[in-house]
Amino acid sequence: MRLEMMEKDSSGKVITEIQVLTVRELKKWLNKPYVVAMMLIQPLLWIALFGKAFNLTGIFSIPPDLLKNLPPYVTQQIQTMFNGILSRLFGNAQIDYFSYMAIGMMAVISLFAGLQTGMSLSWDRRLGYLNKLLVSPISRGSIIVSKVLGGTVKALVQSLIILLIALPFGLKLEIAGLWQVLAALLGLVLFAIGIGTLMISITLKAKSWETQMTVMNLLNLPLMFASNVLVPLAMMPDWLQVVAKFNPLTYTADILRQALLMGTEASTSAILKDLGILTLTAAILLTVGVFVAGKTLRKD
């Protein structure tokens, strides 16, 4: 009985610790609005330049004057063919490329936020703040969990900002339904947690912040290109499709599109598959993270 009470007491303490450190993380972030703004610039540029200039779905639509000059049976065949290509690439829903990309960028900004999580720990170590935490009688896990949670909240907020900015520029939302949106949010959270934990593990192992930077630069663009963020998987060469299928970013982008763009065409089985894969990824990365943290935070 006494033991149980003590345990309750200590788990309550851990929650306080995580809460305080997460709030610290977010306060630090909000106290530097220019950093938030700068984080958003890259995905916004992608949307603006790529999404608007490179109108993939526009390529496959047939100009009306061309249709007028052809006999009806030819236009019908062309129409069927083009529609076939479009639905093979983008599904049956009426999606314009700008919307396709904007939603993809919500996943990308979560990736960036997740990658930043490691840097935040790196700086705490470099500036000595980590030692201050380690000298205090808090649970070592609280430090890691709060970093990852902080990163996840940042990811959510930033992807919401992307969504809000893209709306006036022509993002056409076709919401599938409440549970689909909630599932997509959960997927986004799991993805951010996974990436954040991965980066924390790398930071703990690598020690130097230069390594950390290198890993970040190594991961961000390849992960973005080897996914369905910019182009549908069907448009990729076979080998790249295989890579993209192992990239959690693909499933994050897909679940968001299912929920936010597909409307009635959203597929329940696709959403469940995405969610399952993202859960599995997060679970694996978390296990690795906990293991690495347990080993390295106890220095010797």
């Binding site: 610790e17 610290r24 500036l127 000595g128 201050k132 935490l133 000298v135 205090s136």
Partner: peptide, 22 residues
């Protein structure tokens, strides 16, 4: 510690409140 590890992005008060909570 040897390094001055005050959290630059927080106010003096917030720095102390984080410490107290720990």
């Amino acid at each position: 510690p040897q390094d001055i590890v005050v959290d630059d992005d927080l106010t003096g008060w917030d720095n102390l409140m984080v410490q107290a909570a720990l």
